[in-house]
C-alpha cells in the first residue's frame, strides 16, 4: 500500500522543509456524496495551520479523516514521512498526533487529576495490569499537578471533571492533550460555544502551548484564526479554495464570495480584517 517513492518525495513538493502532515488527493465519499474532494494539504512543522470554510465545506470530515476517525475513500495521508492512511486512531495517537474534540471531551466522573493522569499513564504502555493497585499511578501525580497549574486548574484537582464549567473543561482537555507531549495537535474548533472572555483565554493558551509544536485547527471564529494561524486553508464544497497567510487569503475575491454566499456575518468579519 505504501509507495516508497511517494513517501520519499512527500513534502518536498512545497519547496520548503518537508511537511509534518501531508495529504494527497484526499477524498471521502458518503454513498455518492463527495464531502471531501481531492484535498492536498501540507502542514509545515512548527506552524499553526488553520482550516476554515463556510458551513458544510467539509472541514469536520477532513478533520476526521486526518485523525483516522474516518477512512478516506481515496488519497493518502503522510505524517512525519510515514504513510498513516490505514492506521487506527489509537495508533496515530501513539505517534504523537493528538486530537481534541468539538464538544469538550473530558472523563466526567473521574477527577480532574485523574483525567490528566490518564494521558501521562500512556507512558507505562497499555496499562492492561488489572491485578495491580493504583499505586504506580501516583508517580504521575506531581507532573499532572504541574500541567493543571499551567492551565490554571490546580485548585480543581480533586473535583470531578463533569462538575467544571464549560471553559474550564476545555482547559482541562488541553492539559490532557499536553500531557501526551504531542508532536502535533489537531484542534477541532477549540473556541466553539465560548464566551468572549473564555475565547481570549483559550487563544492565549493555544498560542503558548503551540511553542515548539505543530498545530492544525479547524475554526469558525475568524478573529481567532487571524490572531493565531500562520497559514490558512479555505475549504468550500469539499475542495481547497485558497491557501496562504491570513492577510493574503482574506483578500481573495473567491474566498469573500464563498463567505458572502453562505454566511454574511462571517464575511463581514472577513471584510473588516
Amino acid at each position: 500500500m505504501s509507495n516508497t517513492t511517494t513517501e520519499r518525495t512527500a513534502g518536498i513538493s512545497s519547496g520548503q522543509q518537508p511537511a509534518l502532515l501531508e495529504t494527497r488527493g484526499l477524498t471521502k465519499e458518503f454513498r455518492g456524496f463527495v464531502a471531501v474532494s481531492d484535498v492536498n494539504l501540507s502542514v509545515q512543522p512548527g506552524t499553526i495551520h488553520g482550516l476554515i470554510g463556510p458551513n458544510g465545506a467539509g472541514k469536520t470530515t477532513c478533520f476526521n479523516l486526518l485523525t483516522k476517525f474516518l477512512q478516506p475513500t481515496r488519497g493518502t495521508i503522510h505524517y512525519n514521512g510515514r504513510n498513516i492512511t490505514r492506521m487506527a486512531p489509537a495508533d496515530i495517537a501513539r505517534l504523537g498526533l493528538i486530537r481534541s474534540f468539538q464538544i469538550s471531551a473530558v472523563f466526567a466522573s473521574q477527577t480532574v487529576l485523574e483525567n490528566v493522569r490518564l494521558a501521562l499513564q500512556r507512558e507505562r504502555g497499555a496499562s492492561f495490569d488489572f491485578w495491580r493497585s493504583e499505586a504506580p499511578l501516583r508517580a504521575y501525580n506531581e507532573r499532572a499537578m504541574a500541567l493543571l497549574e499551567d492551565v490554571g486548574l490546580a485548585e480543581y484537582a480533586t473535583a470531578t471533571a463533569g462538575s467544571l464549567p464549560y471553559g474550564r473543561k476545555r482547559a482541562l482537555e488541553i492539559a490532557t492533550t499536553l500531557a501526551m507531549d504531542p508532536k502535533m495537535m489537531l484542534l477541532d474548533e477549540p473556541t466553539a460555544g465560548m464566551t468572549h472572555a473564555d475565547v481570549d483565554h483559550i487563544v492565549e493558551l493555544v498560542k503558548r502551548v503551540a511553542q515548539g509544536r505543530t498545530v492544525l485547527m479547524v475554526e469558525h471564529n475568524l478573529k481567532v484564526v487571524e490572531g493565531l494561524c500562520d497559514t490558512i486553508t479555505v475549504l468550500t464544497r469539499g475542495r481547497v479554495l485558497a491557501e496562504g497567510p491570513y492577510a493574503e487569503v482574506s483578500r481573495n475575491p473567491e474566498v469573500i464570495a464563498a463567505y458572502l454566499g453562505t454566511d454574511p456575518e462571517q464575511s463581514g468579519a472577513m471584510a473588516h480584517a
Binding site: 472523563f107 499513564q121 488489572f130
Partner: peptide, 26 residues
Amino acid sequence: IVHSPFGQVMKAIRENEPRAISLGYR
C-alpha cells in the same frame, strides 16, 4: 480490577470512548 491502572482506562472508555482512543488506548 476497577481500582487498577486497567480500571482507570476502563472507566475512561465508559465516559468518553473517542477521547480514550485519541489518547492512544485501543
